[in-house]
Design a protein around this nucleic acid. Structure first.
Lengths: 111, 111
DNA sequence: TTAATATATTCCTATATAGGAATATGTCAA
DNA sequence: TTGACATATTCCTATATAGGAATATATTAA
């Protein structure tokens, strides 16, 4: 079996760094394909293909305006990712706390 | 060009659902490979391979104890993912707020 | 040493890309 | 209609899996 399709869910779609670049760029505003092409440095066909993947998993929405297609982020589709990572937040806070404690213990020893 | 390696970063490693299953299972406690195999329903060689990927990107740490290898989550490696998704939090809260507002406007019309 | 247990690795194959090149489709203006 | 602009699609190929099967390695106990 091969890897799951990039369009199988937001996790897979977002694994590709270029697609995260696109989402980051769209975070502030709705943009046309050409604006994306100019902002990120990728060929237009590649951008269109990435946008298709993002659209398939609901991470972006598109609407036509004249000759242009305007894309914007559908942030709610990113939420499951955020929520999954949140279940580990308690753990890394705990981890970082222990790192800090150890550092303090070490500086205490030196006194 | 093919897709980036699963070991290229946490985003790619975590795209595979089985690996998220493993991380979820390890979230509560350090576990041996066999415990993982029994908990998740995957063949042992597959589990070992997934663990290798997770270890390569620093998502888990391993230590030997007798014949067993004990794995635990390194939660700090999940943090970049959490942080990236957080940049969109403002957006989905805004989106959900507007959905709510529209619903309220509709129910107001009906009165 | 040998056997048993625990885990890792290798070999195999079907499958799915990502990007480049070329081309198709869609929309507007003259 | 025709040309120009904007975007999408198709075709191609190198590459990287994920899982199954078989086997290798490591560790302990007898």
């Amino acid at each position: 079996m091969a890897r799951a399709a990039t369009t199988s869910d937001a996790f897979n779609a977002v694994a590709e760094p270029r697609r995260r670049d696109i989402l980051n760029y769209l975070a502030t505003e709705e943009r046309s394909v050409n604006e994306i092409v100019n902002a990120i440095e990728i060929e237009q066909p590649s951008v269109s293909k990435h946008l298709k993947v993002l659209k398939d998993v609901g991470l972006v929405e598109a609407r036509r305006e004249g000759r242009q297609m305007l894309y914007k982020v559908n942030a709610t589709a990113i939420r499951p990712l955020h929520e999954w990572t949140s279940t580990f937040e308690r753990l890394w806070k705990h981890q970082l706390l222990r790192v800090k404690e150890r550092a303090e213990a070490r500086s205490e020893e030196k006194k």
